[in-house]
Amino acid sequence: MSQYYWGVDLGGTKIECAVMARKDNRCVVRKRVLTQSDKGYVHILQRIKLLIDKCVEVVGEYPDAIGFGTPGALDPQTGVMKNCNSTALNGQAFDKDLEDVLGTKVILANDANCFALAETHLGVVKRLKPDAEVVFGIIMGTGVGSGLVVNGKLINGLHGIAGEWGHNVLEPNGAPCYCGKNGCLETVISGKGLEAHYKNLAKKALSLPEIVKKAAQADSYAQHTLTRLIEKFGLAVAQVINIIDPDVIIVGGGVGNIDALYEHAPKAIERHLFNSRLETLIVKPDLGDSAGVFGAAMLVK
């Protein structure tokens, strides 16, 4: 068995590879290249091959398997990618094409799944509750993604969307979502959703960090936007807890950086719980932007 395990995080603008030491989970190589997705699907495959070859030059051996974190999911029923915001991947047999180009075994998982897996084994869950049975990882940034880890292993599900949370409807008469429904979580509590709500109230556009700053300065529209975030987050998270009863919920992404969420969301969650009190830990991640690529590598460890 190789002394290393490999992961690749495929993003819309960059592709990142990490080579990890099997004995201590230390990252020994980490490199990035631009995705250049505007040049098409075949070019993305070539960029990945270039990145792998760069890492091989450093460690001196070729991987026998590589885990990939992807911006969508591989549909186990059809064998092709779906729900990718890097649209060139949609409808493609990405795993098979990667194996042809790279000449090695490939395992794919959604990037939010990789986030949850890494924080479970290498990050905040390992630090705070290493005996956790059920972990739910959320990425609340431009969109909303999530992943589910049970007994240390990813749960993928029949359709490859187990743990998916961002496209459950929160406001049936809400804003249209790219998925075709209205009022999805992603349209309500993502960074873009919060910015859109503030703009609708204040009639001017601000970035999410600016809204948070304005709320601290007693801007009523900004305060309303954050209060709404907390209430809607509480309702949506309570539904997750009522179904899967996780030990830990990790909240990553730009929205996850809002301190008020951790201060006030527990009360908002408790109002909707079947259980009488909230005991699930609601925490920030430890690994930052390393989580995706480290989690991808753990797919093949």
Rank of each mutant, 00 (worst) to 15 (best):
V212Y: 00
G137C: 01
G253S: 07
F233R: 07
V251M: 15
S220G: 05
I250D: 09
T187D: 09
G143I: 03
I241H: 04
H197A: 05
C177V: 11
I249D: 03
T187G: 09
L206F: 12
L229P: 00
K213G: 13
H264D: 09
L185F: 14
I138S: 00
L201I: 11
P176K: 11
I189S: 09
N151T: 13
I189Y: 08
A202M: 12
K199L: 11
V144S: 03
N200G: 10
E195D: 05
Q239H: 14
L235V: 11
L201D: 08
C177K: 05
V134M: 05
L154V: 06
A202D: 09
G193H: 04
L261M: 14
E210C: 08
C184H: 08
S190W: 06
L185W: 04
Y198R: 01
L201C: 08
V169L: 07
G160P: 04
G254Q: 00
C184G: 10
G252I: 03
F233K: 11
V169R: 07
K129D: 00
G163W: 04
E186Y: 12
A215D: 00
P209T: 07
M140G: 12
L158N: 09
H224I: 07
I189R: 12
K204I: 13
C177H: 15
G253T: 14
V255I: 05
S190C: 15
T142Q: 02
K204M: 15
E263G: 14
G253H: 06
L122I: 02
L229M: 00
D259F: 06
